Computed example of a mutant assay.
Amino acid sequence: ADFAFRFYKQAVSKEADKNVFFSPMSISTAFALLAVGAKSTTLSQIFEGLGFDSLTETRIRDIHGSFHKVLAVLNCTDVNVTLNIGNALFVAVGYKIQETFLQNAKQFYDVDYFSNDFNKPEEAKKHINKYVEEKTEGKIPALIDHLDPNTILVLLNYIYFKATWEKSFDPLRTREDDFFVNTNTSVRINMMQRQDKYDSYYDQDLSCEVVELPYQGTARALFILPDDGKMKQVEDALSKETICKWEKNLDTRRLDLQLPKISISGSYDIKKLFMEMGITDVFSNNADLSGISGRRDLRVSQAIHKALLEVDESGTEAAGATAVMVNRFLPSFPTIKFNRPFLILISDKTTSATLFMGKIVDPT
């Protein structure tokens, strides 16, 4: 989970007043898979960047083992939730990959394996993009923009999530409303509304309202609404400890909840962000990916991530992916109205894995 918040802070530092949406689960799994073939400093930088330390040989096997377990649990089909997460390797035709790398990639990450002719980059790109598009139910149709003909290997992770709210919003109560992007800009949005009992908590120290919206099944979304002008303060405090504190203090109360319908996406240059986070060797000529090729002749040339979030009355759909809710005013109970920038965390309760994380500055 720490990785999720560190990556979030890095992404936000680039563009403070923009929507942010990404899947920590997807990014960390892709790099953990890459780590199967990494050695020396390259390996330790990747794992330290993902939040793991004291890297003995046993510990490294345990990390891969825990990714394997989490992926297995997440992929277990719950009737109410669609959650598909998987990995693939696209390898240049005729390129000899180390057998142990392939075995471990299969054993721990259950990879799909394809061989591709990267000398025909357009065709190779089409093949990979089509695979991702199918796996994300059409939500991420063009993950890769360009491929270098010198590509040897593309490692890939996809995640697709679709879940229904435990308590859905009545579309007849959804109204047009203002959403205040900042102090002098507002946009018209569709605000959903429901009066019901919700688990929520007002954090006095951080000046924010926290509301948990469970999905049918084992997933839930946490919506965090900072008071006016307090977004930065809340963002700076984001950590596993803060989330634990919020969860401990959640209390059931009747609310008039107003949450906007959301449709946003995010696109990230992971290479750039990771280098700023101290994961540098794997992208340079110092890279040691000899576990893949048997020689120290490979490095990562590009790393990208795209994610998409759609939230409506019935639930949430996210790919590579994240979610938000909104409501109309009735005087009888406290109203929590998400009509200014807020944060969203979508996680799986059984594994505590953060599937998606984001900030909604403009739900449209």
Score class of each variant (00 low, 15 high):
5 F>W: 10
7 F>K: 00
14 K>E: 15
15 E>M: 09
15 E>R: 13
18 K>S: 14
19 N>Y: 00
19 N>V: 03
21 F>H: 09
24 P>Q: 10
26 S>P: 05
29 T>V: 07
29 T>W: 02
37 G>N: 07
37 G>R: 02
38 A>T: 00
38 A>R: 03
40 S>P: 01
41 T>G: 10
48 E>T: 12
49 G>R: 02
51 G>W: 01
54 S>L: 13
57 E>A: 12
61 R>A: 14
63 I>N: 00
66 S>I: 12
67 F>V: 05
67 F>L: 05
68 H>S: 15
69 K>L: 14
72 A>C: 12
80 N>C: 11
82 T>P: 05
87 N>Y: 00
87 N>F: 00
88 A>F: 01
88 A>D: 02
90 F>A: 04
91 V>E: 06
92 A>R: 13
94 G>R: 09
99 E>I: 09
106 K>H: 13
112 D>A: 11
113 Y>I: 07
113 Y>T: 07
117 D>M: 03
120 K>S: 14
122 E>Y: 11
124 A>M: 09
127 H>K: 13
134 E>M: 12
134 E>A: 12
136 T>A: 05
136 T>L: 01
137 E>G: 14
140 I>W: 07
140 I>Q: 07
142 A>E: 15
142 A>K: 14
145 D>P: 02
145 D>R: 11
146 H>Q: 15
154 V>G: 05
155 L>G: 07
156 L>H: 03
159 I>D: 08
159 I>A: 13
160 Y>F: 10
161 F>L: 01
161 F>C: 03
163 A>L: 02
168 S>K: 12
170 D>G: 04
177 D>V: 00
179 F>V: 04
181 V>D: 07
182 N>W: 05
183 T>S: 12
189 I>E: 03
195 Q>P: 06
197 K>D: 15
198 Y>K: 01
203 D>E: 09
207 S>T: 08
208 C>S: 12
209 E>Y: 11
209 E>N: 11
209 E>P: 06
211 V>M: 10
213 L>G: 06
217 G>W: 06
219 A>R: 08
220 R>W: 09
220 R>Q: 13
226 P>I: 02
226 P>R: 02
243 I>T: 06
251 D>K: 15
256 D>Y: 13
257 L>H: 09
259 L>G: 15
274 F>K: 00
274 F>Q: 02
277 M>S: 02
280 T>P: 01
286 N>Y: 10
288 D>P: 00
292 I>K: 02
293 S>Q: 00
296 R>T: 13
301 S>H: 07
311 V>P: 03
312 D>M: 05
312 D>A: 06
312 D>P: 03
313 E>I: 03
315 G>K: 00
317 E>V: 15
320 G>K: 01
323 A>E: 11
325 M>G: 15
326 V>F: 10
329 F>I: 13
332 S>R: 11
334 P>I: 12
334 P>Q: 10
344 I>C: 15
344 I>E: 08
350 T>S: 15
353 A>W: 08
355 L>V: 10
356 F>Q: 11
358 G>H: 04
361 V>N: 09
364 T>R: 15
